[in-house]
């Protein structure tokens, strides 16, 4: 079942008189439950495409549908509302709020969508357990290792039970072991929850985790495999 449809999307940055195409006529579809890698070298447009899919940015041309709804023309608040309920993010830098504990960071998205306190608590504890961070729930980010912070970020991204999770170079700042752990957790949660995962990477060691690979180069899709089922 189709979750994302991208049709002829371009993203142009204008600096003075110079126009730079970050994405050029990209079209693709992503089904529910996929575990897809966006791969390509630096500057190929992976992050820009993730930002457009995540409604953090808007295309200069073309249209995007998420769960059947066109999102390319939504205003700032409508995009925020969509992110709040439907999209989780994992960033390359360990994007936790430094003043909040691991528990509170995971709880943060749930505070916005009116989840009851009891339900919130149960969900946060379950998610921290799922990423192996129950013992570190009351630690602040500066008391956690990079791998632990990224695991908390995975739990936070899953907290509002989103349709999809977009991960931008999620292991780029981790050593090999922690990188593998994070990828395995994401893979497992994809299987267990059915949440769609799309992650951008240029690390060949991670290509094998994906069931589908979309290769970008110079802002264009140059290879678009179909999902392989394990």
């Amino acid at each position: 079942m189709e979750l994302i449809k991208v049709e002829n999307v371009s993203r142009v940055y204008r600096i003075g008189e110079v126009q730079t195409y970050a994405l050029r006529n990209v079209s693709l579809t992503i089904q529910r439950g996929e575990f897809t890698a966006l791969v390509g070298p630096s500057g190929s447009g992976k992050t820009t495409l993730l930002q457009i899919l995540g409604c953090l940015d808007q295309p200069s041309e073309g249209r995007v549908w998420i769960d059947g709804k066109e999102v390319s023309q939504l205003n700032r608040n409508q995009r925020a509302d969509l992110r709040r309920g439907s999209i989780g993010f994992i960033f390359q830098f360990f994007a936790l709020i430094p003043t909040l504990t691991a528990y509170e960071n995971v709880e943060m998205p749930l505070l916005l969508n009116g989840t009851s306190a009891a339900e919130r608590r149960q969900r946060v504890l379950d998610l921290l357990a799922a990423v192996g961070m129950s013992e570190r729930a009351n630690h602040r980010p500066n008391q956690l290792s990079g791998g632990e912070q990224q695991r908390v970020a995975v739990a936070r991204a899953l907290a509002p039970q989103p349709l999809m999770i977009l991960a931008d170079e999620p292991t780029a700042n981790l050593d090999t072991e922690n990188g593998q752990q994070v990828m395995e957790i994401m893979q497992r949660l994809n299987r267990e929850t059915g949440t769609t995962f799309i992650f951008a990477t240029h690390d060949p060691r991670l290509f094998g985790y994906a069931r589908r690979t979309i290769v970008l180069r110079d802002g264009q899709v140059v290879e678009n495999s179909q999902e392989s089922h394990p």
């Binding site: 995540g54 998205p109 916005l112």
Partner: peptide, 16 residues
């Protein structure tokens, strides 16, 4: 600034 971006990413509206 980056934290404000994170809050936006997880769905905080301008008014929040």
């Amino acid at each position: 600034t980056r934290e404000i971006g994170i809050l936006s990413a997880i769905g905080w509206r301008s008014k929040e």
